[in-house]
Simulated scan of single mutants.
Amino acid sequence: MVHGHGGDVIQELTADHREVEDIFGQIEALPAGDHRRRQLADQATIELVRHSVAEEMHLYPAVRRFLTNGDAVADKEIEDHSEAERTMKQLESCQADDPEFDRLMAQLMSEIRDHVTDEENNLFPRLRESTTPDDLAQLGAKVRAAKETAPTRPHPTAPTTPPANRLLAPGAGMVDRVRDALTGRGTDH
């Protein structure tokens, strides 16, 4: 269990935000072109897609249900996710020494940081005001379960067994592969 995870949905998602920010900080601390930046970008992508899927499955339906103007709020959040995913998909095909990698990484960090600020300053306080602690605790458990249904984070030694090896396979499509694994899309069951 990653330190800081647990608790209600707001605590859980805030811990995710700090984790991704930590990865971004590691990327920013490395010199341009360093191959470790590519590995960290992959790690950030997996974390971000897991977080996005969990929010789309559980947080945004709650936002629609509990918040005044909840539909508009949820629609905007989902649009933020779509923008970030488009950036992550472009990033997949860039190596760390490609100038485009730096441009896209900066764009992704900016998109995610804006989204995080908006969620933490606006969405989360509104959700806390309009729900009960029990609602938030139940949502936290659902979000954790949703994130755990798929291969989680890349390990120092790349996995050689499915489905994790397919998730981390080189080439385009990692965002979609992670999303498919989390949502069960494209599986037989």
Results as ranks from 00 to 15, higher is better:
Asn69Met: 10
Pro99Gly: 05
Glu85Gln: 12
Gly184Val: 08
Ala145Arg: 03
Val73Pro: 10
Met57Thr: 11
Ile46Arg: 01
Thr149Met: 05
Thr183Phe: 13
Thr183His: 11
Ala106Cys: 05
Pro154Lys: 03
His155Met: 15
Asp75Ala: 15
Glu148Thr: 04
Ser130Trp: 12
Gln95Val: 03
Asn165His: 12
Ile112Arg: 05
Thr183Asp: 10
Ala106Ile: 02
Arg153Asn: 14
Gly173Leu: 04
His189Leu: 15
Pro162Asn: 05
Ser93Leu: 14
Ala106Arg: 13
Glu92His: 00
Glu100Met: 07
Val143Leu: 00
Arg50Ala: 08
His17Arg: 01
His189Glu: 15
Leu108Pro: 04
His35Lys: 09
Val49Phe: 01
His3Phe: 07
Ala164Asn: 09
Ala29His: 10
Ile27His: 00
Ile46Glu: 02
His189Gly: 11
Ala146Thr: 01
Lys76Cys: 13
Asp97Gly: 02
Leu59Asp: 02
Leu167Ala: 04
Ser52Val: 06
Arg64Glu: 14
Arg128Pro: 08
Asp102Cys: 01
Leu123Ile: 14
Glu79Ser: 14
Asp75Tyr: 10
Leu123Gln: 08
Pro162Gln: 09
Glu100Phe: 00
Ala54Trp: 04
Glu12Arg: 04
Glu47Asn: 05
Gln11Arg: 12
Leu182His: 03
Val20Cys: 05
Asp16Trp: 03
Leu136His: 02
Asn122Val: 14
Ala106Pro: 10
Glu77Asn: 14
Glu21Phe: 10
Pro31Trp: 10
Val63Asn: 06
Glu28Arg: 15
Gln138Met: 08
Ala137Arg: 07
Arg166Gly: 15
Glu148Val: 05
Leu91Met: 05
Leu127Ser: 09
Cys94Met: 07
Leu123Lys: 07
Val2Met: 13
Arg36Asp: 03
Pro151His: 03
Leu40Val: 07
Ala96Phe: 02
Thr183Glu: 09
Pro163Thr: 11
Glu56Pro: 02
Pro163Ile: 07
Arg126Glu: 15
Asp97Cys: 07
Leu104Gly: 00
Pro61Arg: 07
Arg144Val: 11
Ile112Leu: 15
Thr152Asn: 14
Thr87Glu: 00
Arg18Gln: 14
Val116Asn: 06
Gln39Met: 11
Met174Glu: 01
Val20Asp: 10
Ala62Leu: 13
Tyr60Trp: 15
Ile10Trp: 01
Pro31Gly: 09
Leu127Gly: 09
Gly184Leu: 06
Asn165Val: 11
Gly173Trp: 11
